[in-house]
């Protein structure tokens, strides 16, 4: 079964599993669903506090610049980490029911995306309150988010399928996420660097995406076509690699989990 057919066939299951995981997570805490709002709010507040009253006091533009990057980075990072571990963590289910293995990173990315939707809403309220929101180009977010989802599926799907066979990839990904956070232009403006340095930094697709989100949400500008084309090409490569790996290893995964 090919990758796209599998995702289409199991879309209802992915939606219900996402709902079930979110409900299970909420019901395991005393504050329940309140954590869906509190957790991202606290996350944003922690960084807001540091930069509002700490490192760069009063620089509201920088705070808006930072919030947009953090919200989108958190979506990327949590999707990649949970997707990468998703097959190992679903061991008992995988040994019991046949599901194409791409479904497990898809479950993880869908859950992270549902949480992102809440964080995104909080970010919009904060940015609106600060007077830093530009809604004229909001329509561009739809294709950008579509591309981001495919990029996450490419990275998360490939790593999820490979990790049961090469467990060393797990600590590499965990450390790599921290490195990516530092070089994705979350805390600094890549466009302030010399062009040659920008080209290097923009080899990282997440750095490209974060800059484009800032353009669309804060500056009212459309995304840069050249940069987006690069991310789209890289995403296509990752999706093809995921599809090929999935075809080769889909039924072999349960055997290494026993």
């Amino acid at each position: 079964m090919n990758l796209i057919a599998a995702l289409r066939r199991y879309s209802e299951l992915i939606a219900y599993k996402t709902y079930a995981e979110l409900k299970a997570e909420a019901s395991s805490y005393y504050l329940g669903v309140l954590w869906w709002v509190l957790e991202p709010a606290l996350y944003l507040f922690a960084f807001y506090s540091v930069f509002r009253w700490g490192i760069r006091q009063g620089d509201k533009e920088f705070i808006a610049f930072l919030l947009v990057a953090l919200v989108h980075w958190k979506w990327s990072a949590s999707s990649i980490v949970t997707a990468s571990n998703s097959i190992l963590e679903a061991r008992s289910m995988i040994l019991q029911v046949y599901l194409p293995k791409i479904a497990f990173p898809a479950f993880a990315i869908a859950t992270s995306t549902a949480k992102f939707a809440l964080t995104f809403s909080i970010m919009l309220i904060v940015l609106g309150g600060m007077g830093h929101l530009s809604i004229v180009t909001f329509g561009w977010l739809i294709p950008l988010y579509g591309l981001q989802l495919l990029l996450l599926l490419g990275v998360g799907g490939l790593s999820a399928i490979l990790i049961p066979f090469i467990k060393d990839l797990k600590p590499i990904i965990d450390s790599g996420i921290i490195l990516l956070m530092l070089v994705s232009g979350i805390f600094f403006d890549i466009e302030a660097f010399p062009p040659q340095a920008q080209d290097y930094l923009y080899l990282n697709p997440f750095a490209v995406m974060i800059t484009q989100y800032r353009h669309v949400i804060l500056d009212g500008m459309p995304p840069e076509a050249g940069r987006i084309a690069y991310v789209a090409a890289l995403t296509t490569l990752l999706i093809v690699a995921t599809a090929v790996t999935h075809r080769l290893l889909n039924r072999e995964v349960p055997k290494v989990l026993i």
């Binding site: 995981e21 409900k23 299970a24 008992s92 289910m93 019991q96």
Partner: peptide, 8 residues
């Protein structure tokens, strides 16, 4: 071990 989610 039917893969139940214990919190549901």
């Amino acid at each position: 071990n039917m893969g139940f989610i214990p919190h549901l």
